[in-house]
């Protein structure tokens, strides 16, 4: 029951606080009761039928960039400072 399922919002139904999301081609209706202001195109993380948070796309991109930076600056065996953020 602990498995989180991410999905992209296809349709928002504010009147009953649900949204239709798509996860790797599979559509599901989930409750958006815990996540206000859901918009079509948002990514949601869903647990047991309830969206628990909206995925911050900008933060995801920053993270990927950070890794690419770590790798491009890298010299083998180098100790870089931790705590980038």
């Amino acid at each position: 029951m602990c498995l989180g399922i991410p999905g992209r919002v296809l349709e928002v139904n504010p009147e009953n606080q649900t949204a239709v999301i798509e996860t790797f081609g599979v559509k599901n209706t989930v409750s958006t009761f815990f996540v206000p202001d859901v918009q079509v195109g948002d990514y949601l993380m869903v647990h047991t039928g309830y969206a628990i948070e909206k995925l911050d796309v900008e933060e995801a991109e920053i993270r990927i960039k950070l890794w690419e930076e770590i790798l491009s600056d890298a010299t083998p065996g180098e100790v870089s400072r931790p705590g980038d953020r």
Binding site: F33, F34, V35, P36, M45, Y50, I52, E53, L55, D56, V57, E59, A60, I62, R63, R85
Partner: peptide
């Protein structure tokens, strides 16, 4: 896990 986790979590949940 900054793309999902906030300092204060999800207060509504």
């Amino acid at each position: 896990y900054t793309r999902l986790v906030r300092e204060e979590g999800n207060p509504r949940a």
